[in-house]
Design a protein around this nucleic acid. Structure first.
Lengths: 258, 258
DNA sequence: TCCCGAGAGTGAACGGCGTTAACGGTAAAC
DNA sequence: GTTTACCGTTAACGCCGTTCACTCTCGGGA
């Protein structure tokens, strides 16, 4: 099934990688992401980039997708210090790393997660469903459900519109393995994502007291609120200890890992 | 105590108003906010605006502040269909209107609430504490507390950093009337603001299923989660009915009021 | 092997942006 | 009535996204 890669196609692919790398470097150094700057860093002129992206927004989408992928890989790696059989621990580690990333790299976070999705743009709308981080988190939630059997609404209990939405979902989640009558769990996906996204966005954009932000207590409290609904009450103290660990580690070794 | 307003000062004040008006008109028509466009709309050239704002960011801050004030006035007016003695009803109306505003005017919402606050900029940091909407919501929460006496943490129960933060708060809230030993209620202010901000930002930026967004169920569920903690359990069905009313009204008469 | 054409990249240009500098006019202040 | 502080101008700089016309260079088919 390997695509017949001609030499040209390989070169083109390499250029895409270079575009992403140059963009990431730019953001890393606090510069603005711009077609001209990316091109210059690659030793090209700006119009040449139009062979690869149709416009600036597409560059942003491309970079956002790859940043999301790279960041998710890091949380996933961090989460692997707990075994696959302990999805709850993995989940709280991933959430905390997600927050930490959003705080350390607010510009990248803004790019990936505050990037508004306009109504009509079908292309970008579909991008919604391929977010790597989204799939990672929902897969973890699924694993938690398999292990702890937390309750989720039956289809009948859902609002009609929501029922349609969970039956034919447009969110970044693998759903093939979920029987239609069990799709109520997607409602938990959405609600918990909303909670996580909310507190992290608030903190990342700095719209709260800086001391509270530094303490991590707002985030911690939000996680704590979700321990019960996810059937993890028996694990509460252990999970919160993990969160505290991660927060403390981040405070002491801020900026250790690239 | 009225400042000695000279003719010049009055004229200057009027120009500020015109700047805000022109900016609002610009955003209203879907145009981008820019110094040049604002100036042109006022029959001026861009450099002239530098007599009034030091740079582009200051223009944004100025406009954001006024947009926030105007929007808050509208929610407050809508909330007044319930009497002052019914702060819970006022609160849910205001929250729902806040959400509706964020959905109808995502650009303005982004300007006011997603506008990142950098660490070092003391000026803008202080702006945090003068958000009209912030004060309005916290005042409502205070009224709810006075009437329903919901529980809030004692100072001893708070994390040390958080305790410092509530004792010398940097959030948009009137706090003079709150005794230091009762400042634990500020933690409720922050947490509920986080929840409201979170779900509204998620919906406003479109990072969720459009059908779920249209249904308003994600928002409704978030409100429902806070009914208990705010001591309003006895009022649950009435309050949710109010939310549903507001949501339905917004759906049918979308864009009725300017 | 030769040749053609597709694709990659260039330079020049347009209109827009924030911002600075040097310069006038005008109305308030003394 | 003179001075001066303030408001606004024009011109320019260096960015930006984007388009257009053009060249060059390989890759692939004859």
């Amino acid at each position: 099934m390997r695509a017949p890669v001609s030499r040209r196609e390989r070169q083109r692919e390499a250029t895409y990688d270079e575009i992403v790398a140059a963009s990431a470097a730019l953001l890393d150094e606090g510069e603005d992401l711009s077609l001209r700057a990316v091109a210059a860093r690659m030793g090209m002129t700006a119009p040449a980039l139009y062979r690869y992206v149709a416009n600036y927004q597409q560059l942003v989408d491309l970079v956002a997708f790859e940043l999301d992928r790279a960041a998710t890989a890091r949380w996933a790696e961090a989460a692997e210090r707990f075994d696959e059989s302990d999805p709850a621990a993995r989940l709280v580690v991933a959430c905390t790393r997600f927050r930490q990333w959003a705080l350390e790299r607010p510009r990248e976070f803004q790019l990936v997660f505050a990037n508004p999705v306009a109504e009509h743009e079908t292309e970008r709308r579909e991008l919604l469903t391929v977010s790597t981080s989204g799939c990672y988190f929902t897969d973890l939630l699924w694993a938690v459900q398999e292990r702890y059997r937390f309750p989720y609404p039956r289809l009948d209990d859902l609002d009609e519109t929501v029922r349609e939405a969970v039956l034919e979902p447009l969110i970044p989640a693998r759903t093939e393995h979920i029987a239609p009558e069990e799709r109520g769990i997607l409602w938990i996906y959405m609600r918990s994502w909303s909670a996580l996204y909310g507190v992290v966005t608030l903190e990342s954009t700095g719209h709260c007291d800086p001391r509270v932000l530094a303490s991590g207590q707002l985030f911690r409290a939000t996680i704590a609120d979700w321990i019960g609904p996810l059937g993890l009450e028996a694990e509460r103290s252990r999970l919160l200890a993990i969160v505290d660990d991660e927060l403390a580690a981040a405070r002491s070794g801020a900026g250790t890992a690239g």
